[in-house]
Each structure stands twice: as C-alpha cells, then as structure tokens.
Amino acid sequence: MPVRRGHVAPQNTFLDTIIRKFEGQSRKFIIANARVENCAVIYCNDGFCELCGYSRAEVMQRPCTCDFLHGPRTQRRAAAQIAQALLGAEERKVEIAFYRKDGSCFLCLVDVVPVKNEDGAVIMFILNFEVVMEKDMVGSPAHDTNHRGPPTSWLAPGRAKTFRLKLPALLALTARESSVRSGGAGGAGAPGAVVVDVDLTPAAPSSESLALDEVTAMDNHVAGLGPAEERRALVGPGSPPRSAPGQLPSPRAHSLNPDASGSSCSLARTRSRESCASVRRASSADDIEAMRAGVLPPPPRHASTGAMHPLRSGLLNSTSDSDLVRYRTISKIPQITLNFVDLKGDPFLASPTSDREIIAPKIKERTHNVTEKVTQVLSLGADVLPEYKLQAPRIHRWTILHYSPFKAVWDWLILLLVIYTAVFTPYSAAFLLKETEEGPPATECGYACQPLAVVDLIVDIMFIVDILINFRTTYVNANEEVVSHPGRIAVHYFKGWFLIDMVAAIPFDLLI
C-alpha cells in the first residue's frame, strides 16, 4: 500500500533555474538572501570558489559584500557603492579590487542584480563577478574607477581610450546646418538635424578633445543650467548677453562664444560640459537660429522629431539603469545623424518603425519583477520565466494532490484497515475457520451469522477504491517536481505499489 509523501509542494524551481543557467555559462556568482541580516550568502558556485580561493563552506553565510576579499588596494568608495546597491532595488555595476585567499590582487567587475517577489519586494541578490585585470595590471588604489561605466561593446579594446569628441564640431553647429540641408533625401539625416562627426583615429590627448566618459557625465550638469543662461549661451556672438549692473557675465554663455574659444586653444572642462549641455537642449539648428531671432517656433511634425517616441515608452518600462547606459552608448555611435529632440514631445505622434532597438522591449506582467540581467542570462521568455513566489501546480481535472487534506485522511483510514487485516486475518484463519468446520452448517442466516465476513468484505472494497484513487494521485519525481499527468501517474504506480495493492485487495476469504 503506498505511503508516498512529498510535502515540499507547491515547489518553486526558480532558484534552481537560475543556478542551472548560470552554471551553463561558466559564470562566477553568488546568491544572497536579502531578508536576513547583512544579506548572507546562501549559494556560491564553483567558479566563484576558484576565483577567490575560498571553499564553499568558508563563503556560505558570510555577508555578500565580500568584505573578506578586501585588501589594501580595495577602494572604500567601491565598497560603499556595493553596500548601497544592496540597500536599493536597481541593478548596478561596480569595479573593485579584490584579494584572493593567497593574497593576489585582481580588479573585478561586480554586477549586483536584485530579484523581487510578486509584491515588488527584493528577496534575493545575485552578484556576478568578472575579472577585468590581474594584480600586475591593477593601478594605484588612489585612482577611482567606479565613477565610470563599463566599456562599450562596439569599441575595440585597444581603442576604448582613444575615443574623442571634438569640441569644434559642437561649436560649428550653425555652420554645418547648410551642408545638412543640402544633403536632402540623399543624406542619412532628416531636415533640421545636426550631424556630429566623431574622430576615432588614435591621437595624443589634446586640450581640444573630450573623453567619452566626460560626455556621459554632461547629463548630470544640465539641471544646474538655468533657462535664461541656456538661451544666452545659444544666442551666440551676435547678441551678447546682458548683465545687470554690478553683475558679471555668465561664464556659461561665454563658453560657447566662437570668438572667445578661437582665441585660446584650450577650454576648461567645466565650460566644455556646460556648452555641450546647452546645445543638447535645442532640438535642431533651426531652433538655434530661432533663439537668435527671439522667436522659438513649435517643433515640426516630421520623422526626426518622432524618433524618440518609442524611446520614451522603453525608458518607462525599463527595469534597470543598464538600459540608460545602453541608450547613452548607442546615442554616441560615430558617423550617424543625431536628432536633438526633447523627450517631452507630442504624445499624438505616431511611433516610426526603427531597425535598431535601443531599449529592451516591454516586459510582460509575469516578468515585471525580474531584472534585465536575470532575463538576459536565463534566456527565457515571458511565458517560461515565473515570478519568485509559491505557485500552485497546474493539475488535470479529477486529480488528487498527494499533500491535500483528503489524501491525508484517506491514508490514515487505509492504515487502520491494514492494521485490522494484519490482526484479524490470522485470527480468523486459526480459530474461526476451525469452529466453522466443526459446527453445523448455517446457510440460512447468511452474513448475519458471520459479522467478521462483512467487515472483511468492506475492507476489500476499500482497498479496491484505494487502488483507483492512487491512479489519480500526484507524486514527486526525482527532481522534486509534482507530477499531475494521468499517464505518468499510471506508469509510476504500475512500477511501484500496484502489484502489492492488488494482492492485498483480493478477497481470499470469499474465494475459499
């Protein structure tokens, strides 16, 4: 008679799926529990143990900040960024110097990925580790590398530091407007667009060049630039800015003055950032001319202004700041037409079709709590990747769950009947059967004279019903998954307890 339990259901295979997918890609990662103190490590794979030199037993239950890997060259700011990422709910990448158990130093890129439950609360953290440099290539500990984003994938490793954006290309926007319009339909740009040429040739750093990471940081200074100062900065030398009595002219307006920039070969870094931020506020060169004239017309309804409409929906549905990093990277690809469009465009503009998908598509409701890094690593669709929660398995109709209350009560009843059979069957065979043979035949009273025979008949009927119930009862397979398919249940029961239950259900007393 089957006594099969499996009270692990309803099970959740999400954690096993993450481990299996990460292991298949030869990654070095740990999984931490966000619900406990210090976000203790609950799993670390073999790749991480080989990377740091510690065994799994030495890593388990330690804080996922990996303070046991810190050393003299470990930056405090990087460690603080990892700790801050564990307090938030967004994906974050941090470069930090770690030390192995043998004392060797290596520069590592740590990717902190939160995993949320159905309520939107962070319950786990996945920390992925990628070695960037070994100890002989690690720089000085005073050099802070965590304020910069990861290198873009479309640049060669040897040319990542030679990417320079020439400031004269930004200063000569109005001069290039006529050349853009003359391109017409034969050019790649839309009317009114501004073409910015980027020099990728390796050259020595000069005062006129600005690194790509500095251009990325310009967006942080746009908020500090007032509207009046932006307007004066875009007017140009024809209309000098008016300053109040006793007030000095704005240095932001002076930063885009061609006369002032041409007199000296070098520009201050602050002026460069502010000038680029001011130019980015204009949607095209037409807006710059309109600002000089004193009238700013409404933005025209053409394809170039609607190019950012799908980007707005993608940004609203993005799951991490990696989408913004990807957008900034692609927006700086050289030799393309940049349409400086305000994100607050007309909502009635139709979304044009684009061959290049900048932001990841909208994630469906079932995966809105899973970050983009987890979705990318697992390579699963929205119909396959579940949320991290207890999910009731989908069972067929008329199927009994093996952990249901009805099955528990039924098993206790069958257990009592088995005990009765084990006690009274030998007793009936030894004593009652002998008395029946010696006594007179009682054929007239039937079952009324033999109450134990009636009980034995009921017990046999219950055993037959138990066999039928076992054909529709779920079970737990070797992978700790609840199986509810009727065919698989029948095959599993035939290979197991079916023969024993059938022999126990045969009414031998009635056959004798």
Rank of each mutant, 00 (worst) to 15 (best):
V3R: 07
R5F: 07
G6W: 08
V8R: 11
P10D: 14
Q11P: 12
Q11A: 15
N12D: 10
T13E: 09
T13D: 11
L15C: 09
I19N: 01
E23K: 01
E23P: 01
G24K: 12
I31M: 08
N33D: 06
A34C: 06
R35D: 14
V36N: 11
C39D: 04
C39G: 08
I42D: 01
N45C: 04
C49S: 13
E50I: 05
C52G: 01
Y54D: 01
R56E: 03
A57C: 12
A57S: 12
Q61P: 01
P63S: 15
C64L: 02
C66Y: 01
F68K: 01
L69Q: 01
I82K: 01
Q84N: 06
G88W: 13
E90N: 08
K93L: 14
E95W: 01
I96A: 05
A97N: 06
A97I: 06
F98L: 09
F98I: 05
Y99K: 01
Y99M: 01
S104H: 14
S104G: 13
V110E: 01
V110W: 01
D111L: 04
V113G: 07
V115C: 08
K116W: 13
G120Y: 06
A121C: 10
V122E: 06
N128R: 06
E130D: 08
V132C: 15
V132K: 13
K135P: 07
D136G: 06
M137A: 15
R148S: 14
R148T: 12
G149N: 07
P150D: 09
P151V: 13
G158V: 15
G158H: 09
R164S: 12
L165R: 09
L170F: 11
L171Y: 10
L171E: 12
T174S: 14
S178W: 03
S178Y: 06
A185S: 12
A193Y: 01
D197H: 01
V198Q: 11
D199C: 01
T201K: 15
P202K: 07
A204C: 05
S206E: 15
S207K: 11
L210T: 12
P227E: 06
A228V: 12
A228H: 12
S239W: 04
R242D: 04
A244K: 14
A244R: 12
Q247F: 15
P249T: 14
R252K: 13
S255M: 05
P258K: 03
A260M: 07
C265W: 15
S266A: 05
R269K: 08
T270H: 06
S272Q: 07
R280E: 10
R281G: 13
S284C: 01
I288W: 08
M291N: 07
P300R: 08
R301Y: 09
A303C: 06
S304V: 14
G306F: 07
S313V: 07
S322N: 15
V325Y: 08
I333D: 15
V341S: 13
D342H: 05
D342C: 01
K344N: 06
P347V: 07
L349V: 11
A350Y: 01
P352W: 11
D355W: 07
E357A: 14
A360S: 04
K362A: 09
I363Q: 14
I363Y: 15
E365T: 11
V374K: 03
V374E: 01
T375A: 06
Q376H: 07
L378P: 04
A382E: 15
L385Y: 07
